[in-house]
Amino acid sequence: MNVLETIFAPLAYDFFARGLIVATISGALLGLIGVYITLRGMSYIGHGLSHAVFGGFAAAQLFAAQFYVIGAGLWGIASALAINVVSRKQRIGADAAIGVITTGSFALGVALLTKFGSRGPSFDSALFGSILGISTFQIWGLLAVAVLTLLMVVFRYRALMFTTFDPDVADASGVNVSRTDAMLMIVLSLTILATLTVIGVTLVAAMLVIPAVVARMLTNSFSKMLVTSAAIGAGCGFVGMYLSYYAGVPSGTMIVLTGSVVFALALSLRSIRSAVNRRSHTADAQAQSVQGKKMPVTF
């Protein structure tokens, strides 16, 4: 099988084509939001929220099977806002708030699914992602979340950057920090919900973190980090889907493994570049020393 066949053969299956679209957009979306999540030191929130949404998914389908996505979304948003409020109470702290609210919700989800079974996606699909049975409604839902996220990133770019970098000064400069934080949490919940189908509850958090961390290694500019992280996320989603198809393992698993390999490569390249720079600086210093010149001091 040649390269073109490798790429085009799976596209003959409608389920794969849908999965590829959803995985690529999901990766880009998670990469974009992940920049804010990692820079705010909120990686654990992504992990927690995906578990909270799972609880909502299990509870909602008991009452309205056909609308479980909406129920899970509302549950996720409520959890995100609850974390946001509770974590501001310094005595409790963000990590403890996330631990209590989201693992409680996850435990409820497991209990409900075990007791009553699932009328929507299977237990395993929800945990590890599946490309089977992606509906047109889910694709439109994901596109709607992607457009909403893009609008937020473009039109609240400055406020999001300022509140991420220095919330106190942003507040004093007239930026509504609470509203900006709440908006980010709502979009994060919707993103997790929309991407859960393909990537799975347990693996969504990894795709929030990996592209952003790799992008941070590659650039020192905020705007470039956003674009790079989204591109890496999309690339991992795209490649991961093909690997999933050919390896016969859940899509979320291969998408996250692809991201992990990209991370390892970026880390290695960075280490090599640092070593080369150090050697180059040492050689320059020795040359300057031989010539009796004084080295400029930089910090």
């Binding site: 820079l39 473009v154 039109f155 609240r156 770019y157 400055r158 406020a159 950057m161 300022f162 991420t164 970098f165 220095d166 000064v169 942003a170 400069s173 007239g174 930026v175 941070r216 650039t219 020192n220 500019s221 905020f222 705007s223 470039k224 980090m225």
Partner: peptide, 21 residues
């Protein structure tokens, strides 16, 4: 460690004056 250049940082002062990035 925040990924930001000097001019990007200074421009933060204009956050509420203009919405576009």
């Amino acid at each position: 460690d925040f990924p930001i250049t000097v001019d990007e940082c200074v421009l933060m002062a204009r956050t509420e004056q203009r919405k576009l990035p």
